[in-house]
Design a protein around this nucleic acid. Sequence first.
DNA 1: CAGTTATATAACTATATGGTTACTGACGAG
DNA 2: CTCGTCAGTAACCATATAGTTATATAACTG
Lengths: 104, 104
Amino acid sequence: MFSALADPTRRRIVERLARGSLTVGEIASGFSIAQPGISKHVRILEGSGLISRQIDGRVHRCAIAPDAMQLVCDWIERQRRFWNAVLDRLGDAVEDSTERTGGK
Amino acid sequence: MFSALADPTRRRIVERLARGSLTVGEIASGFSIAQPGISKHVRILEGSGLISRQIDGRVHRCAIAPDAMQLVCDWIERQRRFWNAVLDRLGDAVEDSTERTGGK
DNA sequence: CAGTTATATAACTATATGGTTACTGACGAG
DNA sequence: CTCGTCAGTAACCATATAGTTATATAACTG
């Protein structure tokens, strides 16, 4: 799922889908890359569980999958906690060193 | 900076550096890949501004760069807001549809 | 039915990436 | 000075990835 979102084109697709569901053709019309390329990206996003597809006759309507979105949010929250902890630790280290050296 | 953190090996390097500064050799000893590979990763991390290097004789001591860490935290926070907004919108859509259909 | 449209699939290309080995240079110890 | 060590550079390799074009399949439309 992380690697699915690593590609900027796929992130843009998801961002567009966040505004509402779209068919594959509608997605493709927003990019300068050819339709088969979009099909690939959509397939990857679908395979990662990030989006779902409802086939309605010829058109495939794509939408963001709420469950996956929840996982994304959870994952980001974990990352946020981790990096903030790193940042805090760096802040402490700076304080320590400024104390030891008599400071700035 | 995002692409620098996209590689799992580089993330692990940063995680180890979060525990304290390390020389290139010390970093390399924690991985199964050869030293020149680590050198490359370190160079990429340094080029992205995520870590800094203090050359002390033969040894190169690496540490996380606080400024970049702040940027990472800011970026993650923006992402968190964005994806939570997407999630909220999806939640509303579900509510709407269940209202319309009389569904559970 | 024939023709058009929406999408997928196949085969290929180009490029980026992560890894390797071999070698080089700088520093420090004896 | 010589030798060993830490690290960087160069050249190369394998693989993955994003894109392409051409073709196939399936559903509408007249």
